[in-house]
Amino acid sequence: MQILAISPDPNTKSQELADRLKARYRFLTDGDLALTRRYGLVHARGGPNGEDVPIPTTVVIDRHGIVRWLKLADNYQVRPDPTDVARAVRAL
C-alpha cells in the first residue's frame, strides 16, 4: 500500500519525518490546487486568510486504479478513523 499525502505545501519536513519513522507516506505538492480542483475537493475561501484550501479527504484506490472508498470531511477537526481506512485497504 502506498499513501500519497497531497496539500498545497512543499512539506519537505513532513517527508523527512515520515522517512525517519519509516512510514509509507509520500508528500506531494499541489501548489496551485489544480488536482484538488479537478477532483472537486476545493473548500473555497476556507483558509485562515480566505484562500482556497483542500477539503480533508481520504481516497482508497485499488490496484486497477478504481476508487473503492471515499471520505470527505464535513468538519475539518474530524478525520477518518485509521482503522476504517486500514479495513478498506485490507478488503481489496
Binding site: 517527508q15 523527512e16 484550501v53
Partner: peptide, 28 residues
C-alpha cells in the same frame, strides 16, 4: 505531482503494483 524532492509521481505508476491511499489535507 511533485514529491518533496521535486521528483514527479504519477498515480498510474502504482497500477497493478499496490493499492494507493490519497490523503488530501489543508497544509500547515
Amino acid at each position: 505531482l511533485s514529491d518533496a524532492t521535486g521528483a514527479p509521481v504519477t498515480l498510474a505508476s502504482f497500477r497493478d503494483r499496490t493499492p494507493v491511499v490519497l490523503v488530501f489535507y489543508r497544509g500547515y
